[in-house]
């Protein structure tokens, strides 16, 4: 427990120091020479890239290209997979999240994640938001936090009269917005999203996409998506992965209109994948 507090302080001190210095780095996250292997299989190969603050970055690529593996490495989710090994650095406010002594739970408090399928806790809507905040030591007005968080994800008007009902009674799209609310309730800086709309209908997808545009005013968003039109619509920058390599990383409008690498051109034009 003491270790957690120290780790928490470590990030907070780094953030405060950066804020005092005027927040010099334009990047929310910097990845250096990231190598990830499943046993002997290299899933991500020597990837170096930086994510702009309060922007949406999309990661695209065919199945098995390493995009989700890379995303999960950003908040150490791969550690839950026994055969997975990670080398390289993922720097958050200058601190490598893989440094010995850095607690993965604290990493995930600052770098939250939303998954492909909505996975609300089998608890009330209110509790879904309150739980994460409470275990992270939030001592303010919980009802206020629940309301403001649900408003941020444009869900408040739809659920304000049923906060004590089970979250599982919500529609898929509402559940996913609740999961986003749950992720931001602990006030992270970065939201990782692993195909957050692939299980949703077009209307719910449009709501989430529109939400991303609002959320990026406060958070840095990194989204893995199979849907290239979605990457084109929601992201400021796009990274294309292929067989574990970062092939091209550019402003989205450039990557989709005039890609520099022939492999990117072929993939986004549907010539393979």
């Amino acid at each position: 427990m003491k270790k957690n507090l120290n780790d928490s302080n470590r990030f907070e001190v780094a953030i405060a120091r950066e804020a005092e210095g005027g927040g010099t780095s334009p990047y929310a996250l910097e990845v250096r020479n990231l190598d990830i292997r499943y046993g002997d299989f290299p899933a991500v190969k020597d990837v170096t890239m930086a994510f702009d603050k309060r922007q949406v970055t999309a990661i695209i690529g065919p199945s098995g290209c390493g995009k989700s593996t890379a995303l999960r490495a950003f908040n150490r989710m791969n550690e839950l997979i026994p055969s997975c090994s990670t080398d390289g650095e993922v720097l958050f406010h200058g601190i490598n999240v893989y440094d010995p002594g850095v607690d993965a739970v604290q990493v995930r408090r600052w770098i939250g994640m939303v998954f492909q399928k909505p996975n609300p806790f089998p608890k009330t809507i209110h509790e879904n938001i309150a739980w994460g905040a409470r275990i992270n030591g939030y001592t303010g007005d919980m009802d206020e936090l629940v309301e403001s968080t649900l408003q941020q994800v444009a869900l408040w008007d739809e659920v304000k009269d049923k906060l004590k009902q089970s979250a599982l009674a919500l529609s898929g799209g509402q559940q996913q917005r609740l999961c986003i609310a749950r992720a931001i309730a602990v006030k992270p800086e970065i939201l990782l999203m692993d195909e957050p709309t692939s299980a949703l209908d077009p209307i719910s997808t449009a709501k989430i996409e529109s939400l991303l545009d609002d959320l990026k005013k406060r958070y840095t968003i990194i989204i893995v998506t199979h849907n290239m039109q979605q990457a084109g619509r929601v992201s400021d920058k796009t990274a294309f992965f292929l067989q574990g390599d970062l092939v091209e990383y550019a402003p989205t409008k450039d990557l989709f209109f005039n890609p520099k690498d022939e492999r990117t051109e072929n993939y986004i034009s549907g010539r393979f994948g």
Binding site: M228, Q229, G232, F256, F257, N258, P259, T264, E265, I268, S269
Partner: peptide, 9 residues
């Protein structure tokens, strides 16, 4: 077909 890149151009 929602073309991109060279196809769109």
């Amino acid at each position: 077909q929602q073309p991109v890149a060279r196809d769109l151009r």
